[in-house]
């Protein structure tokens, strides 16, 4: 299962230059530059409070109070840590909400099948388990056929086993659809398993980056994984030897 990322000379899917963002007197993003190539999977790591979610909210158009240059694809999919499904709409209605022209049950069913949730299409969100709700949220992002998927710690609330399954699911749909992904995560292993490139943020700017050259499919016990993991942990200020 090899995958070719579009060559660097093609126009970037995301282009950010000199992004500044203040909350009152506090500067949260300081002169941040970042590019994401079409089809590239980027993981964003960084200590808590360094501005990752703030960046993501700007990139998905939720926060327009910033300075700088931001260009993103107009077709975007977003999933947050909480599934944020409308409790008053059935799962399939949640999936097609906001589509124009309006989506049908059949549209929803095909994308729900992709996240293995077809049988729950008519359920209310309160009837879903945590993992199912998160998958429904992923389906809702996928049905828009996005050019980029923004994920803000989407697996953080899942238990270890479910997280593993969800990671595999994201890897699978990414390989099939070829959109770009920007994944915010706290989990170094998750970043190494999924990403083409890992970007480390510190104090509102990109501190350093690392291309993950490991062959896919990846494995935590595979060659080179441990070394990269140690490097990342050192960057984050944690000693690798536990």
């Amino acid at each position: 299962m090899t995958r070719t990322v579009c060559p660097p000379q093609s126009a970037p899917a995301v282009r950010v230059r000199g992004l500044n963002k203040n909350f009152g007197a506090r500067r949260v993003l300081a002169d941040l530059d970042i590019d994401i190539r079409p089809g590239e999977f980027v993981a964003l790591l960084g200590t808590s409070g360094c501005g990752k979610s703030t960046l993501l909210r700007i990139l998905c158009g939720l926060d327009t109070q910033f300075e700088g240059e931001v260009a993103v694809p107009s077709r975007r999919g977003v999933a947050f840590q909480a599934p944020r499904l409308m409790p008053w709409k059935r799962v399939w209605e949640n999936v097609v909400l906001g589509l124009s022209p309006p989506g049908s049950l059949a549209d929803a069913a095909s994308v729900l099948a992709e996240v293995m949730l077809e049988h729950r299409a008519a359920a209310w969100p309160r009837e879903l388990s945590g993992g199912e709700a998160q998958r429904a949220a992923l389906a809702r992002a996928l049905v828009r056929q996005p050019d980029i998927l923004f994920l803000d710690e989407p697996f953080a609330a899942l238990d270890a086993l479910l997280r593993l399954k969800a990671q595999q699911l994201v890897a699978r749909v990414w390989e099939r659809h070829g959109f770009s992904v920007l994944l915010v995560t706290h989990d170094v292993e998750e970043a190494l398993l999924l990403a083409d490139r890992i970007v480390l943020m510190c104090d509102g700017a990109v501190a350093c980056q690392m291309d993950v050259t490991l062959a896919r499919p990846r494995d935590v016990s595979g060659p080179g994984f441990g070394a990269m993991r140690r490097t990342l942990l050192a960057w984050l200020g944690v000693s690798g030897d536990v």
Binding site: C60, G61, L62, R76, V78, F80, A82, R84, L85, M86, L97, G98, L99, S100, R140, R144
Partner: peptide, 14 residues
Amino acid sequence: VDPGLIEAGRTLGL
């Protein structure tokens, strides 16, 4: 109403 749901609605293009 949960502000998170309003944001979700906006990211869905409502």
